[in-house]
Design a protein around this nucleic acid. Structure first.
Length: 290
DNA sequence: AAGTACCGCAACCGCGCTCGC
DNA sequence: GGCGAGCGCGGTTGCGGTACT
């Protein structure tokens, strides 16, 4: 036996911290006794608006930040853990698509849920559920265009669709002539930094010079092989409409029409990429305007 | 049965913001 | 206006349990 107490053992295992590295500050998992002390005190006296001073008042060898976290994420009343409902999944996905990883804002829309819980749920389950089911529902093999596009963007660490269009190795083998024209204009825009070129194929020549009309392409029943085809056309049409009409609020309605009958995960994914693409595009327009 | 890989989650860390002095 | 303390947040870490080989 080393003679180490449990608390010393915990401290040794977790090391010292820079934030709360005062002597006698315990780290690591909370014991039931510590939980009970903190809970009882806050229920009786409140936090007093000063977390830093709290542990001293209670007699806990913890830093204020740790107490705050423990209370907010675990001890405060009406906290729910696990068992996320389908409705909660929808809210989380929709908000994530709209505002990104603003977990505290997302948590504010879900009573009883904490930002930490939602963050963990998204990172460990929901994201996989979304991607996993999409893969399953479409019977897409692992190197599908959309997946490669997504992976590529993740690796790039930026939401820049041009980086995809500049890398032919990532493109699918068989693409529609209209898509080819779009890609060419994307490359041209990427090389000279003029986003207006993006619109040229549609603005100058809305009808593709081949057997299939634009209308046919947009018909949902022609979207069956989803992947890149779907993404490019939805995104280009959306940019086209946004640029011309400035009807910001029409994205949802537009997507609902175009993705009618698609699995929810597929809708989330498409909306995600369109919003990211549009945000990036808007940034480019701002730069040009400057 | 033992070793290893993977996963989920609680807790920590560090940055940026706010507010009071 | 400058400064520091405290707070809130998002990202990351690492432990413990489980699945897999």
């Amino acid at each position: 036996m080393s003679g180490e107490t449990n608390e010393e053992e915990e401290e040794r295992r977790h090391g010292s911290s820079s934030c709360c590295d005062k002597a006698n500050v315990k780290k690591g998992p909370w014991s039931p006794e510590e939980d009970a002390k903190l809970k009882a005190y806050i229920e009786q006296y409140g936090t007093g608006g000063n977390w830093i001073a709290l542990p001293q008042k209670i007699g806990l060898k913890r830093c204020g930040k740790s107490c705050r976290l423990r209370w907010l994420n675990y001890l405060r009343p009406n906290i729910k853990h696990g068992g996320f409902s389908e409705e909660e999944d929808n809210i989380i996905c929709s908000l994530y698509i709209s505002i990104g990883s603003r977990w505290s804002i997302i948590a504010a829309q879900l009573p009883g849920r904490t930002d930490n819980d939602i963050k963990n749920y998204w990172n460990t389950k929901l994201k996989k559920k979304l991607l996993g089911r999409r893969k399953q529902s479409n019977n897409i093999h692992s190197n599908s265009a959309l997946e490669r596009l997504q992976l590529h963007m993740q690796l790039q660490g930026l939401h820049n669709p041009f980086s995809f269009y500049n890398n032919p190795a990532l493109w699918p083998k068989n693409i529609h002539p209209l898509q080819d024209k779009m890609i060419q204009s994307m490359q041209a825009a990427a090389s000279n930094g003029n986003p207006n070129l993006l619109m040229q194929p549609l603005l100058e020549n809305p009808q593709p010079a081949n057997e299939q009309s634009v209308g046919d392409l947009y018909d949902p029943k022609n979207f069956k092989p989803r992947g890149l085809k779907c993404w490019i056309i939805l995104w280009m049409e959306y940019l086209h409409r946004m640029t011309r009409s400035k009807l910001q609020g029409e994205l949802d309605e537009f997507l609902n029409n175009k993705t009618a009958g698609y699995p929810q995960e597929e809708k989330w994914l498409i909306k995600y990429w369109i919003v990211q693409g549009h945000e990036w595009f808007k940034g480019k327009l701002d730069l040009v305007a400057d």
